[in-house]
Design a protein around this nucleic acid. Structure first.
Lengths: 132, 132
DNA sequence: GTAGAATATTTAATTCTTTAGATGATCTTA
DNA sequence: TAAGATCATCTAAAGAATTAAATATTCTAC
């Protein structure tokens, strides 16, 4: 009768993953500090522990005891999470059409000339790869 | 102490919006039928009403009485919702870098030669627009 | 050894999301 | 006009997400 647990990280979970992708392993205390300074998310110590444990249960993190404290490490790669979330949006919003998604990106995001050149390069590289 | 209401439609809300973007206005009964056939989402009549009313409260839908039944119409455009969700992902996952997002799309999605050509065309068109 | 610091565990409160039963109102038709 | 169909409202249940207080444990410094 309720929403099933998402396979993708939630808002806060993603913030925590970002902290740990940037550097890990980290103890709770450190994760808490960085959430405050880097993500402007000041949480109580116990809140952070709760989240970290939930994420451990979900399989997003690895947890290892170091003395009396736990150290946390991401178990999922940044690329795979991004890819999963992109794929999700691609299928749910754009009915699986990459060019529809791309078009939206071009229209919505404010992209300067350098970025456009960069994008063109990416496409050319991809086109070359395909030929092999 | 809890999660704030999202500015973007949730999973089920998006399915309902898709139905209504495809054709509207529609009465509850019709929305229900299409959710079952098109989205493989068989819900009780009252469940659909509840959702539609929530979405009305959130400002996603317009509601108008037709005889004894209500007719529902989207109040938000497909492009604006897609754009919002893309922008959200762009900032939250790719730190606002469109080319990082694009790269991910190219790597993850399985894009054929025609799609690639299409994407190149989109970029060229955008580049031309920028010059004006 | 005792006070305090640093940890983790337990518990729970709040809001959101999803689902739907029970009930009531109104219309149609036999 | 009474029964059934059709629709809305009210109510609520249960899981998910977010936050944190209260409590217990263990280490450290005096």
């Amino acid at each position: 009768m309720a929403r099933p647990e998402s396979e993708h990280p939630t808002e806060l979970e993603l913030e925590i993953l970002k902290v740990l992708w940037d550097e890990s392993p980290l103890p709770v205390r450190e994760v808490r500090a960085r959430l405050e300074t880097e993500a402007d998310r000041p949480l109580a110590h116990s809140s952070v522990i709760t989240m970290l444990n939930i994420m451990h249960r979900k399989g997003f993190l690895r947890r290892r005891k170091d003395g009396k404290a736990f150290l946390f490490t991401p178990k999922v790669k940044k690329e795979s999470v991004s890819g999963g979330m992109m794929g999700d949006l691609l299928s749910r919003v754009f009915d699986g059409s990459p060019s529809a998604m791309m078009l939206n990106l071009l229209e919505t995001a404010d992209i300067d000339a350098d970025e456009l050149a960069e994008l063109r390069k990416l496409i050319n590289r991809k086109a070359k790869e395909r030929q092999s």
